[in-house]
Structure formats: structure tokens, C-alpha cells
């Protein structure tokens, strides 16, 4: 990474290749967490390995937060790993978002800082590819 590469909005978004989310997986019990750890909440072990999260999943819960620009917050089940995310590229209303809806990871620009460096955030969006929507 150079000083001009975009940087991830949170440290568990890995932009080194195709964007993906990465958990800290406990080497003793396998529990997966996002973000910096002191120890495992399930078994108290202190060693972790990075483990990528599947890029597709389904909405296991959601809400639509009202305001000037309403947004969809969802819990996305990515092959057993729960991810909290905003859902974008969809109308933010209950006619367009539903439980069990298939979604996929996407990224967006979160803006540039004073040095002109871009931050990249993650979100989920409705699945678009044929193979995934056929589920």
C-alpha cells in the first residue's frame, strides 16, 4: 500500500484484492469477531487468525432508520457469520427490503481527506448476478 492508495473505512475491510471483510477467528474455538481483540469472548484464548467472510449472504434482520435520508441497516448472514451493514442501491422502504433477501458485499467512496486520500466503506446491495439470484 502506498500513501495514495484508498484506505478502508474500518480495519476489517480488506482492500488488498477483491474487497472482502475479514474476521479475527479464535484459534482455539473458532469464534469469529470484527475488530481488535484482547481475548476470545467465547473461550478466553488469545490467539486469532484472519478469516475472510463470504461476500454474499441474506438479510436475517433489518430496520429502516428514518431521517432526512432514511437508510437501511441490516444484519446479513454470510454463511453463518453475522455482519452488520448498511444496505445500499435499494429503495429504503419496506416494499423493497425484506427478510431473507439475498445480498452481496459492495464498496462505496466515503470521501477524501485534506491530503486527497480516499476512504472506502463497505455495504451490502441486492444480489445481481444470475447464479446468485436463482437461489
Amino acid at each position: 500500500m502506498t500513501d495514495t492508495d484508498p484506505i478502508p473505512y474500518v480495519d476489517y475491510l480488506d482492500l488488498s484484492g477483491e474487497p472482502q471483510l475479514v474476521t479475527q477467528a479464535c484459534t482455539q474455538c473458532g469464534a469469529q469477531f470484527f475488530g481488535r481483540r484482547n481475548a476470545c469472548a467465547a473461550c478466553s484464548a488469545t490467539t486469532f487468525v484472519e478469516k475472510p467472510v463470504q461476500r454474499t449472504g441474506h438479510i436475517s434482520s433489518f430496520t429502516i432508520v428514518s431521517g432526512k435520508t432514511p437508510y437501511v441497516s441490516a444484519i446479513v448472514d454470510c454463511a453463518g457469520v453475522s455482519v452488520r451493514a448498511t444496505v445500499i442501491n435499494v429503495e429504503a422502504d419496506a416494499d423493497h427490503v425484506h427478510l431473507a433477501m439475498p445480498v452481496q458485499l459492495t464498496t462505496y467512496s466515503a470521501g477524501h481527506d485534506a491530503d486527497g486520500r480516499e476512504a472506502i466503506g463497505y455495504a451490502f446491495e441486492p444480489q445481481t448476478t444470475a447464479e446468485e439470484t436463482s437461489i
Binding site: V10, G35, A110, A119, G121
Partner: peptide, 12 residues
């Protein structure tokens, strides 16, 4: 999580 800004609205 090393967030660069507020998480509300960005991460659910």
C-alpha cells in the same frame, strides 16, 4: 474497528 468516521449510517 479502526473507523475513519462515524459508524452510524455507514455500518448499519
Amino acid at each position: 474497528v479502526g473507523a475513519l468516521g462515524p459508524t452510524e449510517g455507514h455500518i448499519g
